[in-house]
Amino acid sequence: MPYEWLPPSTTGGAQAELHLWPYRSLPKKGFVTFFGVTFGMVSLPLLAVVGSPILWGLLPFVAVVLGGAWWALQRNYRDGSILEELRFWDDKLTLTRHNPRAPRQDWEANPHWVRVHDYGQEGRIEHYLTLKGGPREVEIGAFLSVDERRALLEEITAKLNEIRRPVPQDR
């Protein structure tokens, strides 16, 4: 799944920390393979015209195709570099969204008042998840699949219930 709960030793004092990111269907190794195969397939027809003036007429178009594919895939990687960090403390809950081409977005609320809302079929997307606690309602994991958002709803709700439980006092 494109999210993970970090172990408590790495959370910097928080009780729990969750990182979410978009799914990558083409990893960097796959990008290299795809680009190498594309380069080979586009260059193969040029072998027939090597040594003739036609090569120089076709070469700019081949360069535009390869350059465009390179630029489009790199842009896709940059746009997909979203990271959402949800941190749980006893007295606060923070959500930080690192956007690729926009400023960082921060949200904070008291975990005792935070509610996770699932819009089901009525939201912008199916099973659209939001956190509400304080003056703002913020989305979380909109880039996840429907099944991943359902699982995330259960996990966040369980973590909030765990934090809200009163700690037994020694008498």
Rank of each mutant, 00 (worst) to 15 (best):
P2E: 06
Y3R: 02
Y3M: 09
W5E: 13
W5G: 12
P7K: 11
P7G: 06
P7F: 02
P8C: 12
T11R: 02
A14N: 14
A14D: 15
A16D: 11
L18R: 09
H19L: 15
W21R: 10
W21Q: 05
P22D: 00
P22M: 02
Y23R: 11
R24A: 09
R24S: 08
R24C: 04
S25T: 12
S25N: 14
L26S: 10
P27V: 00
G30R: 14
F31P: 02
F31E: 10
F34N: 13
F34G: 12
F35T: 07
F35C: 09
G36V: 07
G40L: 15
V42Q: 11
S43G: 14
L44H: 04
L44Y: 14
L47T: 13
L47H: 11
L47C: 12
A48D: 08
S52F: 05
S52C: 08
S52M: 11
P53M: 05
L55W: 05
W56V: 09
W56R: 13
L58G: 06
L59H: 10
F61Q: 10
F61E: 09
V62S: 13
L66Y: 07
G68W: 07
G68A: 11
W70V: 08
W71V: 05
W71M: 06
A72S: 06
A72G: 09
A72L: 10
L73R: 00
L73Q: 05
Q74S: 10
Q74G: 08
Q74M: 09
Y77G: 08
Y77F: 02
R78Q: 11
D79F: 03
L83F: 04
E85F: 02
F88I: 01
W89D: 14
D90F: 10
D90A: 15
D91L: 00
K92G: 08
L93V: 01
T96Y: 06
N99V: 04
P100E: 05
R101M: 10
A102V: 07
A102N: 07
P103C: 04
P103Y: 08
Q105A: 10
Q105S: 04
D106P: 04
D106S: 00
W107M: 02
A109D: 05
H112V: 01
H112F: 13
W113F: 14
R115D: 01
D118E: 11
Y119M: 07
G120P: 01
Q121K: 10
E122A: 07
E122R: 05
G123C: 03
G123I: 07
G123P: 01
I125Q: 05
H127L: 02
L129C: 07
T130G: 08
K132M: 04
G134R: 09
P135D: 12
R136F: 01
V138F: 00
I140L: 08
I140V: 13
I140P: 06
A142F: 09
F143V: 04
L144I: 04
S145I: 04
E148S: 06
R149N: 12
R150M: 15
R150D: 14
R150T: 13
A151T: 07
L152D: 02
E154Y: 11
E154F: 05
I156N: 00
I156R: 01
T157E: 13
A158E: 14
A158Q: 12
L160W: 00
L160Y: 08
L160N: 06
N161S: 11
I163S: 01
R164N: 05
R171T: 15
